[in-house]
Design a binder for these strands. Structure first.
Lengths: 202, 202
DNA sequence: CGCGTGATTGAAACCCTTCAAGTTTAGTGG
DNA sequence: CCACTAAACTTGAAGGGTTTCAATCACGCG
């Protein structure tokens, strides 16, 4: 139930851990940075950033699952990214240029997110060489991941993409409805259903 | 002719301009950084980085046009990115993790490229706050551009993708053969030919 | 229990690919 | 500068993968 989840506010547990363990930021630096970020609870289905809005945050997922997507002229959703725990997500164009957001961001599960604004990144980069290097690598890995996805879309079949997906994100197939995975893969739910039957019976 | 182009070595003209004008790096900082980069001439068709190789550079295109692509099991090329003048390109996974490159990089025209290694980026970030901020934005813009491309691939038709392409990169259609544009768009050369006829006669 | 959402299945249609042939264009050597 | 050749582009016909539309089934939740 929603209230329950909300009562158990995670108090930046994962975020703290992430910064120290993965990014290598010293605990002192982390504590110095925490005052300038805020924690937000998002109920399942809540739209965090809407296309056309001007937001000011990048989000880090403490708990739960976000969904980054767009809606085309025919009203069809196209999912660009899932963001489970320990992921960063935002409409980066919006964030950096104060342009209206091109994509939507909403909560696929009840979630806790850390909201980070420009000044957090400026301060963190100023303060910690480790953060700087880590953040740089984070962006580069995302670029790389996206090139792989582009290749999958231009170079492989729906079936191959599905098989890669379940290998890469085995947990997600438990957590999101099939039609969203189809959307992520760039096919219809019907096609995914057929692909799955084919894959199962081999 | 090759020799001629080589004789006219551009001596970091665009690179210098780029760092001062676009990245906002001070001329003194630029001059301090230049000794640690090198200029390389690439003959049309030359493979700069091959899949499986371990490279150490990120490239900035002074002059010419590079092509970033992969080759699938059936020997078919899939172009992930064109890099004309003033573009940065590399197999970033390879660069950062010293992993074997997953993609190929070659010269589509006789080109001059600036080779930048890890230490350049470390020094530049150390030295110039402007470079740091700019490089960060550069990566974020690339991420954004790639999300757009993913959307185009999962959400729009071959025809729409082609029309977007000529709007976004009008110069490239003059400079690369049609079959490469088809490859970039994720369709066959035959399909692109038909799409073009359709678009022309409307 | 009934309703809504998600998953499956079938049949027809569609977009794009494949394969094969023909045409145009561009590059090279004489 | 022409002739020759290879590469690129176009066109057609057939085939395949995926979509669309419609109907049915399964399930969780009030």
């Amino acid at each position: 139930m929603v209230k329950t989840a909300k009562q158990m506010a995670p108090e930046f547990r994962k975020f703290r851990e992430y910064l120290t363990q993965r990014a290598g930021v010293s605990p002192e630096h982390v504590e110095a940075l925490l005052p300038s970020v805020s924690l937000k609870f998002c109920k399942k289905g809540e739209v965090i950033l809407a296309q056309g809005a001007v937001g000011e945050y990048i989000y880090f997922v403490e708990q739960g699952l976000l969904r980054f997507y767009t809606i085309d002229d025919q009203g069809k959703e196209h999912i660009l990214q899932f963001a489970p725990e320990n992921w960063w997500i935002s409409d980066r164009n919006n964030f950096n240029q104060n342009q209206p957001a091109e994509f939507f961001l909403d909560a696929q599960e009840d979630s806790w997110v850390v909201q980070l604004n420009q000044s957090f990144f400026l301060k963190a980069s100023e303060m910690s060489k480790e953060f700087r290097a880590f953040h740089d690598q984070l962006l580069q890995r995302r670029i790389f991941q996206l090139y792989r996805r582009v290749y999958a879309l231009i170079g492989t079949s729906a079936r191959q993409r599905y098989e890669e997906f379940i290998k890469a994100y085995p947990d997600l197939i438990q957590r999101v409805p099939q039609w969203m995975i189809a959307s992520y893969l760039g096919i219809t739910p019907e096609s995914l259903s057929r692909v799955r039957r084919e894959v199962a019976g081999k």
